[in-house]
Each structure stands twice: as C-alpha cells, then as structure tokens.
Design a protein around this nucleic acid. Sequence first.
DNA 1: GAAAAAACTTGACTCGTTCAAGAAAAGCGG
DNA 2: CCGCTTTTCTTGAACGAGTCAAGTTTTTTC
Lengths: 144, 144
Amino acid sequence: MKQEDFEHLLRSADLRVTRPRLAVLRAVRREPHADTSSVLAAVRTEEPTVSHQAVYDVLGALTDSGLVRRIQPAGSVARYELRVGDNHHHVVCRSCGAVADVDCAVGVRPCLDASDTHGFVIDEAEVTYWGLCPACSTSSAATS
Amino acid sequence: MKQEDFEHLLRSADLRVTRPRLAVLRAVRREPHADTSSVLAAVRTEEPTVSHQAVYDVLGALTDSGLVRRIQPAGSVARYELRVGDNHHHVVCRSCGAVADVDCAVGVRPCLDASDTHGFVIDEAEVTYWGLCPACSTSSAATS
DNA sequence: GAAAAAACTTGACTCGTTCAAGAAAAGCGG
DNA sequence: CCGCTTTTCTTGAACGAGTCAAGTTTTTTC
C-alpha cells in the first residue's frame, strides 16, 4: 500500500488529507497493536512537530470512520490496528500484555447468536483470548 | 447466601475475614456489574468509614483469588460481579454503557479453539457483545 | 486566491487508579 | 484470654491516559 492509497482511503471516508493523518496511518501500519504513545513516537520520526493531541484526534477520527480499529483489553491502554472488517480477534498475554491476531475457527461471526440478549440489539461479538505468550509461558514454567 | 457463607468463602480462599471485605461482597451481590465508585458508595451505606483504597485493595484481592470477576469493556472503568466460574459473557450498550449477562449459545467454552494461536497458551476466551440496550435502541430509532 | 470549515498546537485539567507510610485488626501460639 | 506476627486498612499524595478549551493553521471549495 502506497502513500496515495492512504490519501484515497481518507477521502473516501470524507476526511481531509493532512500530514498528521498520513503519518498516523503509516505508523499504525508499521506497528500493529501499538498504543497511543507508540503511535505518537512513530509519527514523530517522520513529522516531529505533531502534537500528542493531534494523534488522539486523528486516531479518534480514523476509528469513528472505520479506517482503523481500536482495541482495549482489560488492564491495557488503547491500541490500534489497520486490519479492519475481517472479524478477527486477539490473544493477549496476561503477563506482558503482548497482543497477536487470531482468526476464530468457529466461523466468520463466532458466537454472534447469544442465547438471551435481554433485548439488546447486538451488532458485534468481540472475542479476546487470554493466556501466556511464548516467551512468558516458557519463563514462568522455568520458575515453577 | 447468608453472611456466614461469605465468611467461609473468604476463609476457603485464604483471605482474612474483615468487615470491609464482607461489605464489598454484599455490595457486589446487590449491584452486579457495579464499578468501583458504586461499590464504594454501596459499601459505605453499611460501613461508612471504609476508605476508597480499601475497596480497591479488597476488589483486587477478591479478583486475584477468583471470588469476584472483574470486567472492563473498552471505554469503561472496571466493573465487578459475583457470578464466577460459569463461563458467561456480557453484552455492553455502546450508547449508555449498560452491561447484562449473556450465556453463549455455542456451548460452555465458546471459541476456545482458535485457529492459530501464535504459540500462546490460552486459558480463557472472553466474549463481549456490543450493541444497544432496549432503552437506547428505541430512543436512537426515534431520533433518526 | 479568498472565505468557510475542519484540523492542529498549546497548555491546563480531570479522574480512575496506584504508591507509600504508618495505624489497626485478624489470626495464631501459648 | 493475651501478646506477637502478618495482613489489612487509613490517610494523603502522586501518576498517567485521556479530555477540554482557546486560538492558530491548514485544507478544501468556489
């Protein structure tokens, strides 16, 4: 995906094309599941004058228009990823907080049929797997 | 469940029985999915002198020992519930943040078989349904 | 190119949560 | 039942992700 594609992506979402927004999109592509401060740091490597507030605004705008996806596992700050619209899920390490993508084996829309929704109108089922990442599972096994 | 049961519950988890802990357990039973400040307020109706830090400590200890379950949907503060060990899930209102319990129709351990876990050792699959609660879905339909 | 609208910078601020030190209470052995 | 040890609680300060607000700059449109 080239520079131009991000421009089109922004325009198709009725968002103005600005240097901070392009830099944020590149940063999120470069570092999937990065948190806000990581995005800010990554953005500043190419656009040193971008404010932290701009990054918050941009990530909010991109999330609202569906260009990026915000995930926020319990105990973690907000993280962002470019991969949207494919209904994938995440596995989170209880020890170090690392996040990886997971495609659910059950199907495209896992568990979307809840048994009793108490009258809620459901539009998404989000699955978060909890466990230990390869590094943490081996190190904790060694200490026990 | 009586007062005595909470005492046994605490002792069986190797936790000392204290007035704040019993009050927190009663508060969480009274108000499922209450956040920390609601728990604090509920606790203080019966134990006015309990500090906010004590509530944080108690909720942390109870969560660590598995007596209560902490849930933290994206964009929400931490919430707590007594119902543990039955693998139920939650539906969260995007508009007002209301939470309700949901039993997944797929089975007891939904989606626990992820296709590719990248070497993670998974011990739990947490499902969060997103949508609109009855009140918010009717009011937003009226405004459109 | 000028005007209007949207986006960005700067800097202060909120609020849930955590940290730290000392006081109080629970549980254990005598 | 009483003192000792450990855990828990109180008090009060601090931290940090995220938000708010005012004014300036940039993008877009005509």
